[in-house]
Nucleic acid binder design. Structure first.
Lengths: 343, 343
DNA sequence: TGGTCGCCTGAAACCGGTTTCCGTTAACCG
DNA sequence: CGGTTAACGGAAACCGGTTTCAGGCGACCA
């Protein structure tokens, strides 16, 4: 119960002042004499009054909330994303609404509904239809994370192509592996799509024929284990397995070690993301570091800016740099960090 | 912009009716003649009017939102939890607010602030102070997930003790391992605390001296790798490593295999949760299956009930059953499922 | 002492919906 | 044909805040 019945009018009555004065005191706006302020604060203190969020939001025409939309939660990537977003939103006194569209047929509708409850939304690339994205952008500021938006919708993403090209060329040239496979589903997300494209382009740039198609699995460790099962059983075993993220790579690694294969001697494995565990496994995983938390934090900042200062709402694309991390799983001798890349 | 300027009064003017009629039509409440309904629907359709959520919420005295509070996101456990919660909230047209308290000093304050923006909150056990929990429960219905609440705060948790006792006895008796260690921090969460207590109790029940203290690490795969480093290097190597969750266990497994140890011949490893990957690694992981998604879904249902029908708000504890899953990592020959327990 | 200015204050309008309450009208019945 | 009733629609109150606007009052100045 507590402060159920307490309204600004009730406090005004108790303090013997007008509601306007109570509002001024509780917000610190306008001029209020010391005597009035004391009386109001006393009444507020005594009865434990806290202004109702809905009333305040209605008057302000602002929800004080930000939305985050993602396809489904799997693995450290999304948890980092959420935490990065949240860490930026909370200090601005904005609460965070989440929406998992995964496996729901009416996600477009759900997202538009969310648009009516928040001041701005970050949408993970590839999550909803472009039409829904545009409609959403008509009602609130929107930022696409890890992908690019249609029209003038701004976006924040990592430089997938640069580092994936470097990684692929590293395997093809330095380690002279000409029989690589790619594990990950390019249809699944813009990120994977870019990585696959860069993987192909790097092959062409050094004159090696790439595989015709990727091993299209989703992004979890279990999928990596299954892919390993399929890949490493076959007789013409690939020399290197380039995975769309670290989770798949760890699954492949576990699968390979479980079959008695040596990494990197028998097969090379690489990941993407540089999750904390990548440096700790044996052999340590060669991968690409991308600033996932920072990606989401930047998205939150863009939205908060667009909300509070609509006149300078950006509509450009932010591309954060990534970094190739060479470790033992690709055949390199020890931990070393190759040059960064990207914007 | 779209429906920016559109209010119920504007639609009423355009349709030539009163605001009450517009409200009745758009909500399907009360009696409205066919002619009026047609005129109103036409105006709504033509201008794309959607009632404002804030105005509606203010009038209804209900936010249409549920809160979920957790310490920090790490691993599949929390992602399952979130998705379970969300899957139950969304069909009830409630949006989900999240709050990571991790590493923030003012979490109690943040949680109380959240309490003013939602209709009910689920709090993961051990996340905030009991005082804050009680104050929160004064303003909105609260359910503790994976833990027990103070006072009359209801809770939903899994039967940790039953299955952990079975697992420990299984290792001590069936496999005759008398030198077990426990990896996980009982201070970290009520779940781990219960599991550690059951681990100790099982030792006593069969007359074996348990280890004096757990290896207190947090719950991520990287922590397991580090724990393995510490445990398996020492000369009096433990015969079995009982981990507080699957992620730690996978880390220990990777660490052990990386050091050239054989599992289960050289060391036995067990987990908790039965994450998807547990069945796929080699050797497959002996663990305890707990219904994480269902845990969160049940919490969401309890809250939704308490919100819509306060008179029959529960204040009891729900304990969901868990199930011992014996696989190869404990030395058992093949996949087999031992009897369930709990509830 | 009269006028002006600036600081405080409160009444009322406003944000965008829902709901109560009452008057009108048509239908139905005796 | 008069009377009762049910169906319908609109004016206004309400949800709980913020903000505008006008007026009161004391201080300062001439």
């Amino acid at each position: 119960m507590g402060n159920s019945r307490l309204t600004v009018r009730e406090i005004a009555r108790l303090a013997g002042v007008s509601v306007a004065t109570v509002s001024r005191v509780s917000n610190g706006t306008g001029q209020v004499s010391e005597e009035m302020r004391r009386r109001v604060l006393e009444a507020i203190e005594k009865h434990g009054y806290r202004p109702d969020h809905l009333g305040r939001a209605l008057a302000a025409g602002r929800h004080g909330a930000l939305g985050l939309v993602f396809p489904g939660l799997s693995g450290p990537y999304f948890t980092e994303l959420i935490q990065g977003f949240e860490s930026e939103a909370v200090p601005s006194r904005a609460s965070v609404h989440i929406l998992c569209t995964h496996l729901r047929s009416d996600s477009d509708q759900q997202v538009l509904e969310m648009g009516r409850r928040v001041d701005g939304v970050a949408v993970i690339g590839g999550t909803i239809s472009e039409l829904a994205l545009l409609r959403l952008a008509e009602m609130v500021p929107v930022v696409v994370v890890a992908g690019t938006g249609p029209g003038a919708v701004p976006s924040v993403r990592a430089d997938n192509a640069g580092s994936m090209a470097m990684l692929t060329r590293h395997l093809l040239v330095e380690h002279e592996l000409t029989d690589l496979v790619f594990v990950g589903n390019p249809e699944g997300s813009p990120d994977v799509s870019e990585r696959w494209a860069a993987f192909l382009a790097a092959h062409r740039s050094v004159g090696v024929t790439p595989p015709a198609a990727p091993i299209a699995v989703s992004m979890q460790q279990a999928d990596g284990v299954l892919a390993a099962e399929q890949l490493l059983r076959g007789d013409p075993r690939p020399a290197g397995v380039v995975c769309a993220n670290d989770e798949i790579a760890l699954g492949v690694l576990v699968g390979a070690l479980g079959r008695g294969l040596r990494v990197p001697q028998d097969v090379v494995i690489t990941g993407f993301d540089d999750a904390p565990v990548a440096a700790l496994v044996n052999p340590a995983l060669t991968t690409v570091r991308q600033p996932v938390r920072e990606l989401a934090a930047e998205a939150a900042r863009l939205i908060l800016t667009a909300v509070s200062e609509p006149e300078r709402a950006s509509s450009g694309d932010v591309v954060l740099p990534t970094e190739l991390v060479l470790r033992r799983s690709c055949g390199c001798p020890a931990n070393l960090t190759a040059g960064g890349s990207g914007s």
